[in-house]
């Protein structure tokens, strides 16, 4: 696999593995392709529209606006907006990464980006009823009540542990590129 660009190497290896399984054990192979297909469909269900929205945001929303609502001095407004944006998402956490990237490039505060990531990963409000019907209200409500203060604590701790030098390095990297994701 020497001639392949590094980024494609692992993908090709994984697909080769899939084909080998299909050849050796067709039954498992078919399950494998079916499962992979459903995962790909899930990805296509969230990522393309998110990238379109981020592209539009990139050209229409000036950096100053993002800084005003989500930046260093955005205070309670910034915290609430990041929290609500994260909580309203139902997709997998990886879909939050490009959103976070756009926030970082447009000058959002680091803690607000963390709030978005943590809220996105664990709150999933659109799935709340689904969680309740599967596991009961005791389970879903208790989990949410622990998660809300949990997100605040995790954000504070993560920000502290990441440290200023690392934060500045990340912002510097994003300042030198265009487009909603790298």
């Amino acid at each position: 696999m020497k001639g392949l660009p590094k980024t494609y190497r692992y993908l090709v290896a994984a697909l080769a593995f899939d084909l080998i399984v299909l050849a050796v054990h067709p039954g498992t192979g078919i399950t494998l392709f079916r499962r992979t297909g459903s995962i790909v469909l899930e990805m296509l269900g969230v990522l393309p529209p998110i990238f379109v929205l981020l592209g539009l945001l990139e050209v229409w929303v000036p950096r100053e606006t993002v800084i005003r609502f989500l930046g260093e001095k955005s205070g309670f407004v910034g915290i609430s907006l990041s929290f609500l944006l994260g909580a309203a998402a139902a997709g997998p956490l990886y879909a939050a990464f490009p959103v976070a990237a756009t926030m970082l490039r447009k000058g959002a505060r680091f803690t607000n980006v963390l709030i978005l990531l943590y809220a996105w990963s664990t709150l999933k409000l659109p799935m709340f009823l689904f969680e309740t019907s599967a596991l009961g209200a005791d389970f879903s409500v208790t989990r949410m009540l622990i998660n809300v203060p949990g997100i605040a604590a995790l954000t504070w701790l993560t920000n502290l542990l990441v440290g200023r030098t690392e934060r500045e390095a990340i912002y510097a990297r994003y300042a030198n590129q265009s487009g909603p994701a790298q």
């Binding site: 494609y8 981020l54 539009l56 487009g179 994701a181």
Partner: peptide
């Protein structure tokens, strides 16, 4: 905007 969207999508796709 759409060019930015498709570029960043394709860049991360692999």
């Amino acid at each position: 905007a759409l060019r930015i969207a498709s570029n960043s999508f394709l860049r991360i796709l692999p």
